[in-house]
Design a protein around this nucleic acid. Structure first.
Length: 702
DNA sequence: GGTTAGAGTATCTTC
DNA sequence: TACTCTAACC
């Protein structure tokens, strides 16, 4: 096997096949190449059966790509290796072992929206006002508890205030509901395998025997459960290879803990650590800028990326008048690039929040720039698509209450709130799913309909089944009768959905409802980003661009309040995460980076102004070429004026921890801490602790 | 039981 | 702004 294309460290990482290995791989240092080569090396040179290899990637797309690359190196047998995300891996374990865990075969996976719906419903059923108790927050509490192995009972014991008492009750009921419905949430996909392994050592033994070699990518973004799962599988074999980069840890909001990397050497005492610091992706200008930004983080291992790719062009910085001006700038620059022979597909525009894609879209449509939005509120979030999926889920698992409640009266069948409430009551009393307690009434008609469709399920292809649902439920007729622009659109979307099922069938051969639904729940829009088939500009969030690279990258909205996001103000750990996010964004670019922001931007329907992001100031000015210095100067005067006029007090307000204050919106509060210009203040329920600009006029000492 | 207007709230990121 | 939820009316 030819390892000549690898540098010294990369080669070392490939050759070290036995025992624990940690690869600290900087952005663009060729880690995917190392991982795939390593898998191929294990198979070809060490004679390892691919069946004994487990490789975990961050997205399904990355998994597919890795599988393909290994396929190109070793051929057909690559397919025997298990290459997937943690969540897909969890699903496969569940599907083979559901009996041990007390589930039946047709498990439906809930997405985060579904979980939230269950929480809301549970709050209501338990008689709590969901204006007082924030369902989202409670869902997060439940998720955290599950991930940290805290049971509802344990949580109830530790409950310390009104909210956590309510949360503990909702948590218990939430778990009961999921189980009765034979449904699992995203957390369960990781937690249930752990539970299984703890309770059934023989099953764990089987997986240990199978997965002699375990490789994990993006280790900095593993959460507690993923960490535990990894440790359980590799405790005895010890052939574990983790790849990660602390500077690219950007998923802490989801429970990821980059300290898993820092602790690797403690967990595996005999570990070898290899650093990959040569970057093969970007120009030194881009790398220097990235290094300038990230070196301001305190919590990190020292590392400096370098490259041989030459200095390249300076970074272009444009400070726009407002959002649409910024969009115009982006399209103008894109058109210039395209005139120079650049392909649209080699360009990406990155933003902090999905909401920012809209204004870009307008600009792109105006200037006729072809684009592709990755992720965001996409196709699968449309009502008609959610409805058809709910029908499919219900046909697959009639106990799935969430899907049932979604479609029992869609289209209208005259089953109103009263009847539904009665059904829910009955199902709670009898500890059964809603479907199982239906007997008689209009509901019976609905049940009969589902029974007929269930019967058809095995007798036709997926696409035909979808068509059958559209006809038999009356969904199609409803939209056809409506004859509005909107209903036309919905019909088109439903046709589009059928072409998705058809594509799926063509790709996989004849497929089961189970496979299709699993893919739907786990494969996200991010996995759909265009692979160069379409020559379009990619629009995506900084989070979803992780692992990708483009010749030309635009980072827009580099403003205080957006990037870094205002919710992170005053919280050091979160500001550092925002900075890592910025680092990830910068290091996506190969040839040239464009950064921009806007003085005025419409948010929440109101025009607001903001200053340039602190991260821009951290970059050595010599690396930056300011596109519009005059406007910039003028604008900074405007900016000063805005600042002077309104929101802030002229003099510094002396706020200290312990001070009582009054806020125009949140009322009375107590200062918890003050750092720099940010005061953390605890307000009364339901506001809680807020981080606010200390000198804001809305705050006064009392 | 269905419809609709008004209120309220969120936009932070995702498997 | 735009979406979702609720209450009141039909």
């Amino acid at each position: 096997m030819n390892l000549e294309e690898l540098n010294k460290e990369q080669k070392e990482a490939v050759l070290k096949t036995e025992g624990p290995l940690l690869i600290l791989a900087g952005a663009g240092s060729g880690k995917t190449k190392v991982l795939t080569t390593k898998i191929a090396y294990l198979i070809e040179e060490c004679g390892i059966d691919p069946y004994n290899i487990l490789a975990i990637t961050f997205t399904n797309k990355a998994a597919k790509e890795m599988q393909n690359r290994v396929y190109n190196m070793v051929g057909e047998k690559a397919k025997k290796a298990q290459i997937s995300t943690f969540h897909s891996f969890g699903v496969s374990i569940l599907r083979s072992n559901y009996r041990y865990l007390g589930y039946s075969s047709n498990i439906v996976i809930l997405d985060s929206d579904d979980s939230l719906t269950v929480v809301k419903r549970t709050l209501r059923e338990l008689g709590f006002d969901n204006k007082v108790y924030n369902a989202n927050k409670i869902r997060n509490i439940i998720s955290d508890s599950k991930n940290n192995d805290v049971s509802p009972e344990e949580f109830a014991k530790k409950a310390y205030d009104d909210e956590s008492v309510v949360a503990s009750k909702v948590y218990a009921e939430y778990e009961r509901k999921l189980k009765i419905n034979n449904t699992v949430d995203f957390d369960d996909l990781l937690i249930l395998p752990i539970k299984l392994f703890k309770e059934h050592k023989e099953v764990l033994k089987m997986y240990e025997d199978r997965f002699q070699y375990v490789l994990i990518d993006e280790y900095q973004d593993t959460n507690e459960a993923q960490y535990t799962l990894t440790k359980m599988l590799t405790k005895n074999n010890r052939n574990i290879c983790c790849v990660g980069d602390i500077d690219q840890s950007i998923y802490s909001f989801r429970g990821a803990n980059y300290r898993n990397i820092l602790n690797f050497e403690k967990d595996y005492k005999e570990a070898t650590v290899i650093k990959l610091e040569q970057n093969y992706r970007s120009t030194t200008t881009i790398l220097d800028a990235a290094n300038d930004v990230i070196k301001n983080n305190k919590e990190r291992k020292d590392k400096v990326l370098w490259s041989n790719n030459g200095i390249g062009e300076k970074i272009s910085y444009y400070r726009a008048q407002n959002g649409s001006d910024e969009a115009r700038y982006v399209t103008k620059e894109i058109n210039k690039l395209v005139d120079q022979g650049v392909e649209y597909r080699d360009i990406a525009v990155l933003y902090r929040t999905n909401a920012m894609s809209r204004i870009l879209e307008e600009g792109f449509i105006n200037d006729k720039v072809p684009y592709h939005i990755v992720g965001g509120i996409g196709f699968y979030n449309r009502k008609e698509i959610k409805d058809i999926i709910a029908y499919l889920k219900l046909i697959y698992n009639e106990k799935d209450d969430i899907s049932l409640l979604r479609v029992i009266n869609t289209p209208k069948r005259g089953i109103g709130n009263r009847s539904i409430e009665k059904l829910i009551e009955k199902s709670n009393e009898e500890n059964k799913s809603i479907y199982d307690v239906i007997s008689g009434g209009k509901e019976q008609g609905f049940k009969d309909l589902i029974e007929i469709l269930k019967d058809k399920q095995n007798k036709m292809t997926l696409t035909d089944l979808v068509e059958e649902i559209l006809i038999m439920t009356g969904i199609r007729k409803e939209y056809e009768d409506e004859k509005t622009l909107e209903s036309e659109n919905r019909l088109e979307n439903l046709e589009e959905f059928k072409s998705i099922t058809r594509t799926f069938e063509d790709r996989e051969g004849l497929v089961s409802l189970e496979d299709f639904l699993t893919e739907l729940s786990l494969v996200t829009d991010v996995d759909e980003s265009n692979d160069g088939d379409d020559n379009k500009v990619n629009l995506l969030t900084v989070h979803s661009v992780k692992g990708l690279e483009f010749d030309y990258v635009f980072i827009i909205g580099l403003e205080e309040g957006i990037f870094p996001h205002m919710n992170s103000f005053g919280i050091d750990s979160e500001l550092e995460e925002e900075r890592r996010l910025c680092y990830v964004a910068i290091t996506r670019a190969r040839k040239k980076l464009f950064i921009s922001n806007a003085i005025f931007r419409i948010m929440f329907g109101q025009e607001q102004s903001s200053e340039p992001s602190r991260y821009i100031k951290e970059i050595n000015p010599e690396l930056i070429d300011i596109v519009n210095p005059e406007i910039n100067k003028h604008n900074s005067k405007v900016q000063e004026k805005i600042n002077a006029e309104s929101k802030y007090n002229d003099e510094d307000v002396d706020l200290q921890a312990g001070d009582n204050v009054y806020h125009d919106v949140f009322g009375q509060g107590k200062v918890i801490s003050v750092s720099n210009d940010i005061a953390k203040i605890a307000f009364k329920h339901p506001y809680g602790v807020k981080s606010l600009i200390k000198n804001h006029k809305s705050i006064s000492k009392i």
